[in-house]
Simulated assay, not measured.
Amino acid sequence: MSESGRRARKKAQTRKAIGDAALRLFLERGYDQVSVREIADAADVSLSTLFNYYPTKESLAFDESEAIGSALVATVRDCAPQEVVGALRTFIVKWAGEVASYPHAAEFTGMIDRTPALSAYGRRVWLQHEDALTKALEEAVGAATGDVLCRALARFSLEAFDLAYAHPQPAEAIGAVFALLDHGWVAARG
């Protein structure tokens, strides 16, 4: 194995150890009752190492946001222009299902709901994908930069997850929101 491959693997292992330790401690004791120092100790890393991987305490709870955002954008880039709304719907339904199937999903989402700092941070992190998603939509459908319809579709697609998250039947809620988006998208782009 090359030195760069070994280094990348070691970084991934360190990141995972920190994330796993944080999640375990947060679920055991509650987010507000765990210090960043305790997480670093549990992961057997220094505080500076922890902050190299996770810039804030809140970021420890949302480890996969960047990868999810990249996958969302790739979904749009990899589909035909007339399929963007359906591709977004499929991605959000699939991702919501994956979130629900995570070990300790109910405990984790309960912790997020009970912790205002995490709720606000999670929403901010999720909605930060709006710009990249808007750009991908503009490219996918051949729209000009700054196209308000692409911006709206990006924003409302991201909001659909939030709406579904609070609904007793998330997949059904996502379907209803995307039916509305699809009709509006077709009519507006007409």
Rank of each mutant, 00 (worst) to 15 (best):
R6T: 04
D41I: 13
I18C: 05
A8I: 09
T90I: 03
L133D: 09
E3S: 08
G146Q: 00
A71S: 13
V186H: 01
D41K: 14
D78Y: 00
E172S: 12
H167G: 02
A43N: 02
R189L: 08
I112P: 04
Y102K: 12
K16Q: 14
Y54D: 06
G190I: 02
R9H: 08
I18D: 01
A117H: 08
P116T: 06
V36R: 04
A143D: 03
D63Q: 15
D131N: 07
A143Q: 04
D32T: 05
I18L: 00
A96L: 05
D147T: 02
A61W: 12
T56S: 15
F62K: 02
D20A: 04
V141F: 02
I68F: 12
D131T: 14
E58G: 05
I112Y: 09
R29S: 03
P170V: 01
K135S: 13
E98H: 12
Q128R: 15
F91L: 08
E83K: 06
E83W: 06
G19K: 03
A80F: 03
V93S: 07
I68V: 14
K16S: 12
A179R: 14
A173R: 11
T49W: 07
T109M: 14
V177R: 09
T56N: 07
S101C: 04
A8L: 12
A152V: 03
I68G: 05
L181A: 04
G122F: 07
Y102S: 13
D41H: 09
Q128D: 15
D113L: 13
L50D: 05
A144F: 04
T109N: 10
F51S: 12
E66C: 08
L158Y: 00
D113H: 10
D131C: 06
A80D: 13
G122V: 01
A17P: 06
E138P: 05
E66R: 13
A160L: 00
F51L: 10
V93E: 13
I39V: 15
E107R: 11
P55V: 03
I112T: 01
Y102H: 13
E28R: 01
T90C: 11
L153A: 01
L163S: 10
V85M: 04
L180M: 10
Q33K: 11
F161A: 04
Q13I: 08
G146H: 00
V148Q: 14
A188Q: 07
A144P: 02
R6S: 09
E58D: 07
K11F: 12
L60K: 09
A120W: 07
V93W: 01
G175V: 01
V186L: 12
T75N: 06
A42C: 07
H104P: 02
L133T: 02
L180I: 10
K135L: 12
S4I: 15
D147K: 06
A87Y: 01
E83C: 06
S157C: 03
L133W: 09
P103V: 06
D41E: 15
L153Y: 01
S65N: 11
L127I: 04
Y31R: 02
L137W: 00
E28S: 10
A42E: 11
A71Y: 05
D182I: 05
A117C: 13
E83F: 00
D63V: 15
F108I: 12
D41W: 08
T56A: 09
A8M: 08
L158H: 02
E139M: 03
